[in-house]
Design a protein around this nucleic acid. Structure first.
Lengths: 361, 361
DNA sequence: CCGTGTCGTGTTAGCGCAAACATGGCTGCG
DNA sequence: CGCAGCCATGTTTGCGCTAACACGACACGG
């Protein structure tokens, strides 16, 4: 009986969910008036509005978004193309974007892409276009911008993508973050700073590596060879075992916290203490990094800001308040979080002892 | 000119994307025949099919999913309700679900819920219903099952939810995993095992705590007081500072890896070595856990299986091949990954002499 | 040679909604 | 007092697609 009542509330006599026509019949008005109430049109008599709203509640009416989309051409839905969600940064950015979109009453169609080759990304775009999304946010595109010339027909915002393309973008200021990290280590008296980089395909990884190089050049320091990981702790550990054999290495800037963790373990196993012998700075400020041994000094990215800005940029384009000529990129500035993995260099470079018999193999 | 050509390919003369009618006109057939080609109907002359396909490619036709949804009542879209994506397990499960749904050519509408109170979840359901999703997967519902009696009108699959409800479910066998963890520690000679639990609101947390208790009772061991964290490393650290003051504590089962990390740091600061003085087992096997100091013994969850099973269960219901009476829950068995954070108890409870003064780091 | 299928295709109608236009009652102002 | 203008509401139409049915051509068996 209760069950029957519940069914009744969800389906009308035609065995389908209630439509505007059902509401209209119940409230004694036309379907158009129901539509006006649903969409908050101003020109509705308060009493009529009340009657319609009561009728909607009575049969538990929900607007049909497909019909609305068909009639208006808009869907109140944005698409997100995202890569590996196991990566903390990607998941965080996705979370922030979804939350922000919801606050605008937009739904989110998420497409994940395993490999960031052009074919897979083109397929992702096509899938989203079929779903009639109103706009697309590409989260952390790890490829060059060639795919971005695909005709999508909808506004696109790119997060941490290549700056040279024709779409709106949002990005963390990787260069500023890297510069702060390098500066921090140099200020602690280290002769130079080594770099454990992310995969060269990744645009953020390249930006961080370039900024590290620039910061060393600015300070007129020797530039050690770059070593590459793939963002994982495992790769940090592998590369770290090689790095541990370099005696003159006293400071490392790792391109993310996971690789820093792997590096720390490798150094620990090699008997080199952090920060006693080697100071380390990470990037991302993952929630665990404050509890590593030792707690990691790192660069904090503001993912909330990335979500906020990317959605707002898309909304502005949807509303037409964003001029097409404004191809700018919104930049989010990161900040350093100093913990215990960095310290003043034990043997200062100024005195008689050999100073940094520079790079190596 | 190129630009104009591109526009032409995306829009027809009416300033809208090309429709079936446009394809039909170009191919010299009716719209219905185009529909048949698009949907792979068998009763189409190969030559006609070829002509239609060529026409579609020529004007870059994409079916309009809103119109299809309106006409058929199906949307090729499933909804996912997910909680905090910063939590590794949630992000992993989401990733797996999305990937699996895509392989069925279903799109995914993701709704995130900040607080798992009934109101917010009801809103999430409503939002998905408005978007006309064909089915819903609730990822890691952290509440009791009262909300699950909401009339949704579509099939629902619950991941790690309460087993007592009327929907299909998929879950990791938290009980089995916890039992393995406790058994592992007892087998190493520990008198009993302490438990650092997740928040009591969480169903997986409660299951793990209950299974820990049952395992101790089965082995007829004393049951220490449960201590609660909130899944974060920070909470593990806070609780850990208290735990470090309990001298008789030699083994801890932490309900996830992050809390285990915080606990390890607290013990380290208190001068108690892991695993020398205290052995620790975590849960989840996050990618970083193999690089903690020491590498963490933990219970590995098969998130791929969770994604696979939950989507398949939903697809079966959509296809009608799942009988409504079959209200069972698919269970995924986890496995232990033994690393260095656990070792044989240094001072065995029975004899006098210390046997095997455990290795360190 | 005519019924009965089957196959390829066309025609019609309607899914639920909102844009555009129509209508009729009322207000306000010269 | 009469007409312009506005307000609340109704009517018509079509968004793009597919279910259901219609239709002609041809095949085959009795």
């Amino acid at each position: 009986m209760v069950e029957a009542g519940r069914r009744k509330a969800v389906e009308n006599h035609r065995g389908r969910p209630p439509s505007m026509a059902d509401v209209a019949a119940l409230a004694g008005v036309s379907a158009q008036t129901v539509s006006r109430v649903v969409n908050g049109s101003r020109n509705v008599d308060p009493e009529t509005q009340d009657r319609v709203e009561r009728a909607m509640r009575m049969i538990n009416y929900q607007p049909n978004s497909a019909a609305r989309a068909l009639a208006t051409g808009r869907n109140k839905m944005i698409g997100i193309i995202s890569f590996d969600l196991e990566a903390y940064g990607n998941a965080r950015a996705l979370q922030a974007i979804v939350a922000r979109a919801q606050s605008h009453d937009y739904s989110v169609d998420v497409v994940t892409v395993k490999h960031s080759n052009e074919g897979d990304i083109a397929k992702a775009f096509q899938r989203l276009r079929r779903q009639n999304v109103d706009g697309i946010i590409v989260n952390q595109a790890q490829v060059l911008d060639s795919f971005l010339s695909l005709p999508t027909g909808v506004p696109v915002v790119v997060v941490d993508g290549d700056i040279e393309h024709r779409y709106r973008g949002v990005q963390t200021d990787h260069a500023a973050g890297s510069a702060i990290a390098v500066r921090h280590l140099l200020d602690l008296g280290h002769e130079t700073v080594w770099h454990l980089a992310g995969p060269n395909l990744s645009i953020p990884a390249r930006r961080r590596a370039e900024a590290w190089l620039a910061a060393l050049n600015d300070a007129d320091r020797p530039v050690p060879q770059v070593l590459y990981g793939d963002w994982t702790a495992a790769s940090g550990y592998e590369v770290g075992r090689e790095m541990a054999r370099i005696p003159e290495m006293t400071a490392v800037f790792a391109a993310n916290d996971q690789m820093a963790l792997g590096l720390m373990r490798a150094l620990h196993e090699a008997g080199r203490s952090v920060p006693g012998d080697v100071s380390i700075v990470g990037f991302d400020n993952i929630p665990e990094s404050g509890y590593f041994l030792p707690p990691l000094t790192t660069i904090d990215q503001d993912f909330e800001a990335i979500g906020r800005e990317s959605v707002e940029l898309l909304m502005a384009q949807l509303a037409g308040t964003d001029t097409p000529e404004a191809r700018g990129v919104t930049t989010i500035t990161p900040r350093i979080v100093v913990r215990s993995s960095t310290t003043r260099r034990a043997r200062p470079p100024s005195d008689a002892s050999p100073r940094g018999s520079a790079p190596r193999s």
